[in-house]
């Protein structure tokens, strides 16, 4: 086994060159390069974390803006709806008022017309009575030669018209 057979003659050389090469590896690579590589990784992780945080912040801001917009939108919609219903109610009220007014006018006209019709009818009836009384007076004078007074003829006509 050369490792043991040669040990006494090679150990110093092995130790010396191992210390040189491992020393180079430790001081140049381990102490010099590794921290820089780790720094690079750390910087990248930091950058990624920062970017993620910025993205999260933007997202939150966008959410807040959307929420605010939604609230404003809802308020606007409510206001518009209120305006619409208010004007609708107003229009309805004015329509009803106008309808009532017109109805009242029509009713008044109707009542007046009815009154006029009743008056005309009464007048016509009175005329018919007087005409009938004159006719009855006349008929009685001609046919029976009886002179009938105007009042008797009138009451007789009234009696007859009530029976008719």
């Amino acid at each position: 086994m050369p490792q043991i057979d040669q040990m006494s003659e090679i150990w110093s050389s092995q130790l010396f060159w191992l210390l040189i090469t491992f020393g180079f590896v430790f001081f140049v690579i381990g102490k010099g390069m590794v921290p820089k590589v780790l720094d690079t990784v750390g910087m990248r992780d930091q950058q990624i974390a920062d970017d993620l945080a910025a993205a999260q912040a933007s997202r939150d801001a966008a959410d807040a803006a959307e929420e605010a917009w939604r609230q404003r939108e809802n308020a606007n919609r409510e206001a518009a709806q209120a305006l619409v219903s208010e004007s609708k109610a107003k229009a309805q009220a004015s329509t009803e008022a106008r309808l009532a007014e017109v109805q009242a006018g029509i009713d008044a006209q109707l009542a007046e017309a009815e009154q006029r019709i009743a008056a005309s009818r009464a007048e016509a009836a009175a005329e018919i009575e007087s005409v009938a009384a004159e006719a009855a007076q006349d008929i009685a004078a001609r046919l029976a030669g009886v002179k009938v007074t105007k009042t008797a003829a009138k009451s007789a006509v009234k009696e007859a018209m009530r029976h008719a």
């Binding site: 003659e9 090679i10 110093s12 050389s13 092995q14 010396f16 060159w17 191992l18 040189i20 090469t21 491992f22 180079f24 590896v25 140049v28 690579i29």
Partner: peptide, 21 residues
């Protein structure tokens, strides 16, 4: 008084260090 000859072992240590570098 200690021998520090550059051996094949030392050469491969050097190669290892260089390749690693």
């Amino acid at each position: 008084g200690f021998n520090i000859a550059y051996t094949n072992s030392a050469m491969w240590m050097t190669i290892t260090a260089v390749v690693l570098f």
